[in-house]
């Protein structure tokens, strides 16, 4: 029998605990494939967040550290500065990164830390049970916004990629999606670039991945994908918001 696919070596044998349809599973696999392809397993460090991806450290077969809510970019800074040989990536959700950890992500980008950040945006708090996130769309129902996010009370969602792209020291910012095969291929390319940038010493790289959360959205995976494409992509357009790595490479 010919094997046509196999588990990336950068993933452990542990079985994912993620819900059916959840984007974390896809992005974990993509990231692990990239680690294999770039041959950095023996120097990669994952910084696991607080949130659904808290056990990212159990799944990635690389050095790991699990940190306080939102502090991933600060922890990654400490590791990278202390051991510059390491390839450090902070893996974070939207509550972790865009709410409690907003200062950490903005300042890591502003300092131009040579780290990689993977940001899963599914517009909701997953682990704690579907509360409103800073990325929740206006009108979207959450357990702390039962009538839907009200612009007058809770304001508008934060577009993190667009915001970080304003910072001069951020070198590569792209938003991708995990909703379809073509988009997943694009997502992998973006993640690979974000790691390659770090290997090349080019500076702060950030990939936002739109993802679904059928469980907390109270829907099915298929309907969830429709929501992602119709609603989320309207608020969060895909694309490269910043890429000055080519110029930097030439300048090297």
């Amino acid at each position: 029998m010919n094997a046509i696919t196999k588990r990336p070596s950068a993933l452990t044998e542990a079985q994912f605990h993620y819900c059916p349809g959840c984007g974390h599973s896809v992005v974990h696999r993509l990231t692990a494939e990239v680690i294999d392809e770039l041959n950095i397993k023996d120097r990669a460090v994952v910084v696991a967040p607080v949130g659904c991806a808290v056990f990212a450290d159990k799944y990635f077969d690389v050095d790991s550290i699990q940190g306080p809510h939102g502090r991933g970019p600060a922890i990654a800074t400490g590791i990278k500065r202390a051991k510059p040989d390491s390839i450090v990536f902070s893996y974070q959700g939207d509550g972790d990164l865009a709410s409690i950890g907003m200062a950490e992500i903005v300042h890591a980008a502003a300092r131009g830390e040579n780290i990689t950040v993977i940001f899963i945006n599914n517009t909701i708090y997953g682990m704690t049970g579907g509360q409103m996130a800073p990325t929740t769309l206006v009108g979207q129902v959450a357990t702390t916004a039962p009538k839907g996010r009200n612009e007058k009370l809770q304001g508008n969602p934060i577009n993190v990629s667009e915001m970080l792209a304003q910072l001069k020291s951020a070198k590569y910012i792209e938003r991708v999606s995990s909703d379809s095969a073509p988009n997943i291929i694009k997502a992998k390319k973006a993640i690979k670039k974000a790691f390659q940038n770090q290997i090349d010493g080019l500076g702060f790289s950030f990939v936002e991945v739109l993802s679904i959360c059928p469980t907390n959205w109270g829907t099915t995976p298929l309907k969830g994908l429709d929501f992602l494409r119709e609603k989320m992509m309207a608020q969060y357009p895909l694309g490269v918001f910043k890429d000055v790595t080519a110029a930097n490479k030439e300048g090297k």
Binding site: G67, P68, R71, A74, T77, G78, K80
Partner: peptide, 21 residues
């Protein structure tokens, strides 16, 4: 390495990362 952090919270978490190495 010296980092002037954006907050005490961030500084102690940088320490957490560095101490882990």
């Amino acid at each position: 390495a010296f980092v002037q952090a954006e907050s005490e919270v961030s500084a102690v978490n940088m320490l957490y990362g560095a101490a882990a190495t």
